[in-house]
Simulated scan of single mutants.
Amino acid sequence: MKAFSISAALGISLLGAGLAEASCEKVRMAEPGWTDLALTSGVASVLLKGLGYEAETKVLGTTVTYEAMVNGDLDLFLGYWDPAMATYFAPYIEGDAIETVNQNLEGAKYTFAVPKYVYEAGVTGFADLAAHSEKFGSRFYGIEPGSNTQMMDIIDTNAFGLGGWTVVESSEQGMLAQVRRAVSREDWVVFLGWAPHPMNVEFDIEYLSGGDDYFGPDFGAATVHTQTRAGYTEECPNIGRLIAQLDFTVPMESEGMGYIINDGEDPEEAAMRLIKHHPGMLDGWLDGVSTLAGGPGLPAVRAYAGLE
């Protein structure tokens, strides 16, 4: 998972003053620049376009996304990671301006990871890191600024004796490039790891125990949820039915993310390829869903995806 840190001012600039008024014909989505959410938003876009809707996705910081939903400028967000994003969502729980309508993924996780050779050398938990500070260069490798809160909190509180460490912030790809270099040399590196993600296939990695207070139990176990602006599913019940049925699996997302990261496909290309590899998923996603014009949804999307 990765995120762009975008200030509220920049977010307003990105959104612009003239976003279209909410309507069912155009579905306005956002994702924070994380590959998994780029993929799932891409899947939603393909389904919606196959049904005759217009779909638009903007890359925005999480807080900006929530502000835009509260203001009625965005309709749909497929990427609320719970509990990893609970801090970001907490200010918006009051007032019911944002609705959580569906759990679209279970089995996700998010915490510190190391190459297996480091794990086998004795670094199996957060408490083992400080004793090997020199080998690690006293550095954590994270993703975009604004997405490494747990790392920063560990340093600020000197948890596990790691107060003297620093966080190297870059991007998902920048972090993975550093891991790739380290692994090629069998250097020691500790970084943010998560599933679903192709890193779990590309690298032989292990997740560290003991970070429950920062990432949650069971290696930062998480579920991912679909959220909308308040009242959206009542205004647009056909879309509401679709997104209530739209769910994914960790292996499926890891596969589709590989199309983006390794093969250079854009999210909708990757989504279309994923749908063609798993056409049976359409049956559940589109059960009882119609096209914008009122026709049967499943055959329309199958035709759009080239499955007919």
Rank of each mutant, 00 (worst) to 15 (best):
Y88S: 13
K109C: 12
P91A: 10
A130R: 11
G174K: 10
G163Y: 07
N104E: 09
Y92Q: 09
F203M: 09
G142K: 02
I98E: 05
D204I: 08
M151F: 13
K135V: 00
I205F: 01
I143T: 15
Y92P: 04
A86G: 11
V189L: 14
F191M: 07
E144M: 03
L176I: 05
I143L: 12
R185V: 01
T100Q: 11
G137V: 08
E169N: 12
D187V: 04
E206L: 02
E144P: 00
A90C: 04
A195G: 09
L162P: 02
T124M: 05
M85R: 01
V168Y: 08
W165H: 03
P145I: 10
S171Y: 07
A195V: 13
M85N: 12
H197F: 09
T87I: 12
V114R: 02
D153M: 10
Y88G: 12
G137D: 07
S171G: 11
R180D: 15
T124A: 10
T100I: 15
F89K: 14
G146H: 06
A130M: 05
Y207K: 04
F136G: 00
A131V: 03
A159S: 14
V189P: 03
G174N: 13
Y92K: 08
T124D: 00
S138C: 07
D82H: 15
V189D: 02
A131D: 14
K135P: 00
G163N: 09
D156L: 09
L192F: 12
G142W: 00
L105F: 13
T157G: 04
S170C: 07
D187R: 03
N104H: 12
H132T: 03
M199N: 12
V101S: 08
R181Q: 15
A131L: 04
G163H: 07
E99I: 02
E106Y: 12
R139L: 14
Y207C: 02
P198Y: 08
G146K: 05
P198V: 12
G125R: 13
A90V: 08
I154D: 00
T166I: 13
F160C: 09
D156V: 01
T111I: 02
S133I: 01
A113P: 02
N104R: 08
Q150A: 14
P196W: 05
V190Y: 01
H197N: 15
A182S: 11
G125F: 00
P83S: 05
Q103H: 10
E120A: 06
V183S: 10
S170H: 09
G95Q: 12
H132D: 10
V101N: 05
Y117K: 00
L162T: 02
V118K: 00
E172D: 13
N148T: 04
N200A: 11
D96T: 10
G107S: 13
F160Q: 10
Y80G: 04
R139M: 11
W194A: 14
M175G: 04
I205E: 01
P83E: 03
F160W: 14
G122R: 05
V114T: 07
E202P: 00
H197K: 11
Y141W: 14
A195C: 06
A113F: 05
Y88L: 09
T111C: 06
V168P: 01
M175D: 06
M199Q: 15
Q178A: 14
V114M: 10
